[in-house]
């Protein structure tokens, strides 16, 4: 296999990159100045060497604990539980949440072989038992599996005396009822709230 084929095959394994795009990226790297390709190669190696899950929350970080867990400005009574590290970024971008996080590393999906033992649950329980946590916000995805994971966590957290909440689900902001699918409208109706 030639070097071109080799790189194209590796790039095509990335999510969202098909064979054609991979080939285009390969030719771009060949034509670009050598230092561009070297910088990319160094960045790929560095991210693999330095980035790891935070020992406290499971978020991806270069330092232990991560910047969010270390921050004095965070509300340490609040922990938001998410499925993946990428979800931390999504919640952070809202600018509305100032608490801490806990990354489960997935959701209950028995058909995929993911049961309770495969999730990062015990460290969450230890965090709640240890200290100042007053509320756990469960922000698993709004799917059947995400909901079942939330129910499972609630059953474990309830005996520890901590308040457990679930993020809301329903229609997107700026959306149009007419164009929303039936499942989303049904969920929005199920989760309707009293107007104060």
């Amino acid at each position: 296999m030639s070097a071109i084929d080799d790189l194209t095959a590796e790039l095509a394994r990335l999510p969202g990159v098909g064979r054609k795009t991979a080939l285009r990226l390969t030719y771009h790297l060949i034509k670009a100045p050598a230092e561009h390709a070297e910088r990319l190669a160094r960045a790929v190696i560095a991210v693999r060497e330095r980035v790891h899950p935070c020992e406290v929350c499971g978020n991806l970080t270069e330092d232990d604990p991560c910047a969010i867990c270390r921050s004095e400005r965070r509300d340490r009574t609040l922990v938001c539980v998410v499925e993946d590290a990428a979800d931390v970024g999504a919640v952070e971008r809202t600018g509305e949440y100032r608490g801490l996080y806990h990354v489960l590393g997935g959701r209950l999906a028995p058909l995929d072989g993911i049961g309770p033992d495969e999730l990062n649950v015990l460290p969450l329980l230890d965090r709640v038992k240890e200290g100042d946590v007053a509320e756990v916000v469960i922000a698993t995805n709004p799917s059947v599996e995400g909901e079942a994971t939330a129910v499972y966590l609630q059953k474990l957290l309830r005996p520890l005396g901590v308040t457990t909440t679930r993020i809301g689900r329903g229609l997107p902001v700026g959306g149009d009822l007419e164009y929303a699918d039936g499942v989303t409208i049904a969920e929005a109706l199920h989760n309707r709230r009293r107007l104060e």
């Binding site: 058909l111 059947v144 909901e147 079942a148 129910v151 699918d181 039936g182 969920e187 199920h190």
Partner: peptide, 21 residues
Amino acid sequence: DVGRSRQGIGRSLRAFAGASL
């Protein structure tokens, strides 16, 4: 064309486990 969404199954762990099996 959706007939019935079964999001409710996720609200009970036993129901979810049984439906998955």
